[in-house]
Amino acid sequence: MPDPTVHAAHDRLLVAAHAAGDASGPDLERAAALVASCPECARLHRDLRALSAALAETPAPARPRDFRLTDEAAARLSRPTGWRRLLAPFSGARSAVGPLAASLATLGLAGLLLGGGVNLGLGGASSMSAPAPQAAATAAPAAAGGGDNVYGSAAGQGALGAAPAPSAAPSAAAAGTPPTAPVPSAEGAVTGIASAAPSVVPPPPATGPAGSPAVASDKNAPSAGVSAGAPTAAPSGAGEANVAPTRSAATPPATPVAEPPGPGPSPLAVGSALLLAAGIVLGLLRLAARRLA
């Protein structure tokens, strides 16, 4: 009589793997040893093999009903659902979506090419020739637009004095601020020059030794007038003008050139891009619909 406690310690899963023919190597040796030495393991091995054979011969259960489809069920199943339903109008063989998509895309592409050609032909030329006249045109009103003669003349001088330096004129033109706006008081020439400078916002009156034009002009009004008269001080920043008014005459100003704002995309380009996008979207929808169909 085999000792059941001994068999309980045996690896049943190993015997099952051996019965299924899945044990190999050391596992196979161990399983074979168990089956050979333990009667319970041998019985388990036989039972598992018998069960596997019996399962293969199990009779199939009889079906309780007929599973053929009725016409109604087929019609219901043929109707598209979900995404297919939404995309169904795009998938028809005679659908006008395909030609429409192609037409839209072609029109959009042609429009983009045409708009691009116009931009290249006209916009390029204008961008090359625009700055100088634009600067002159904008500098002149700035010079003449000041209600105060002092500021106007100072600005005019600044503009004229900056004329040899190419960057000065656009900077004066691009200041964009009315010449009279930032002028605090009657510091005249210096403030006029400061207002003509493009992106240099007059710093607040501070205690910096060479910092603010207000301090410099307060203390050295005559010299400020002189420096204002010197046209080369105009393009540089106020602090630089105050620190070295004469140096800037020799060195070209480092003022960044502010480009005039572009005219923006033309309506032709926008419309063409929209047409192209619509054509592409329609084409993709048709492609997806035909794949789902």
């Binding site: 049943r12 899963l13 099952a16 793997a17 019965a19 299924a20 899945d22 388990l44 039972d47 598992l48 069960l51 596997s52």
Partner: peptide, 8 residues
């Protein structure tokens, strides 16, 4: 394997 053991 476990299923056959459980069946048994």
């Amino acid at each position: 394997h476990r299923g056959r053991l459980a069946l048994r």
